[in-house]
């Protein structure tokens, strides 16, 4: 075991996959000489050269299109969105071409493409740099979406995403890059479509993902001493949703709280609720509680910014209200 920061775990995943397969290359703004805005690709260009760590001009839609063309013809590009919000500028290429082209081509072409980068609400970054794009992209057919949350799962998931023959949108979080964890020396891969059970419990299921996992864990510090026993699930896969794991948990707890950083309106939580309605409605003993970001642009002011996303105290309060005082 050796200790890795989150960003170095991602870097190690890229390094291993680039060493394993010469068709893998990284492109994006400042991924080469500069080493990436969060240092995920630091110095890799010295090892793999400038074509494999391709510093692009600032033209998200077109360099994404270029990556799609390269993927269609046999390469395995990894796009770094310097900030995931910038990918709104590449929305057409991601939706129409990465997402739909394999299908509309009747299976003529594969698009082995990873689009990764930092998203989520950081600290005082302003509305445009604080975006959660997962709800925008969940509507796109033909893509997979993964949100990593620990150095361990970040490494194993990114390696799997690079080996996948489909377009994978890979969400990182701006506030998690400096987390540290001991990682195995030996190679490991993690499945892209499986949720992670973070804590087993029996009272209530708390479903979350990305940085909100840590807000949930913070809330447990208050809840566990009070005798509550929640089961915590980190979704990992945002598309497709691992409804089997969520459903199995509900069969035990019969109560669900969703904690998500994306917007309430049309968000991942909304989709989970709809899916539970379809498959697991009879398991519910209480209405599902949804803690999501407020439907406003993320404000700059710290106090207002904190108000827009769920806080640990909100999670504590939601559990107590749903289960009654212990």
């Amino acid at each position: 075991m050796a200790e890795y920061t989150f960003f170095n775990a991602l870097r190690a995943a890229l390094d291993e996959e680039m060493a394993r397969d010469a068709r893998v290359f990284v492109l994006g703004e400042d991924v080469g000489h500069y080493g990436g805005s969060y240092k995920v690709t630091k110095d890799l260009y010295k090892k793999y050269g400038e074509l494999r760590l391709l510093d692009t001009p600032i033209c998200e839609n077109s360099f994404t299109g270029l990556a799609i063309g390269a993927a269609m013809t046999g390469l395995r590009p990894v796009i770094e969105g310097m900030n995931m919000g910038f990918l709104l500028l590449a929305f057409n290429q991601i939706a129409n071409n990465a997402g739909m082209l394999r299908y509309t081509s009747g299976g003529n072409f594969k698009i082995p493409l990873v689009v990764r980068g930092p998203g989520g609400v950081g600290r005082n970054l302003g509305a445009e740099h604080s975006q959660r794009l997962e709800a925008y992209f969940q509507n796109v057919p033909g893509i997979k979406m993964v949100a990593c949350s620990t150095p361990y799962n970040a490494k194993g998931l990114l390696k799997s995403a690079i080996r996948d023959d489909n377009p994978v949108i890979f969400f990182e979080h701006v506030l998690l890059y400096n987390l540290k964890e001991n990682l195995p020396e030996e190679e490991y891969l993690l499945p892209l479509d499986k949720a992670e059970i973070v804590r087993r419990g029996k009272d209530v299921t708390i479903v979350t993902y990305s940085r909100m996992r840590y807000h949930v864990l913070k809330a447990l510090e208050t809840l566990l001493p009070k005798g509550y026993d929640p089961e915590v699930i980190d979704l990992i896969s945002l598309k497709p949703l691992d409804m089997d794991t969520i459903g199995a948990s509900l069969q035990k707890t019969h109560r669900l709280i969703i904690v998500e950083e994306d917007m309430r309106c049309g968000g991942i939580g909304a989709e989970i609720i709809a899916s539970i309605n379809d498959r697991f409605f009879d398991e519910l003993d209480a209405p599902i509680v949804r803690l999501a970001a407020k439907d406003v642009p993320t404000p700059y002011n710290t106090r207002l910014e904190n108000l827009t996303i769920p806080q640990p105290a909100d999670i504590v309060a939601a559990v107590e209200e749903l289960l009654g005082g212990s």
Binding site: G65, A67, G69, A70, T73, G74, N92, N96
Partner: peptide
């Protein structure tokens, strides 16, 4: 939208 995709195929040849 096809223009950058075509450039991707050309990049692939160079690569």
């Amino acid at each position: 939208e096809g223009i950058p995709v075509a450039a991707g195929a050309a990049f692939q040849t160079k690569y």
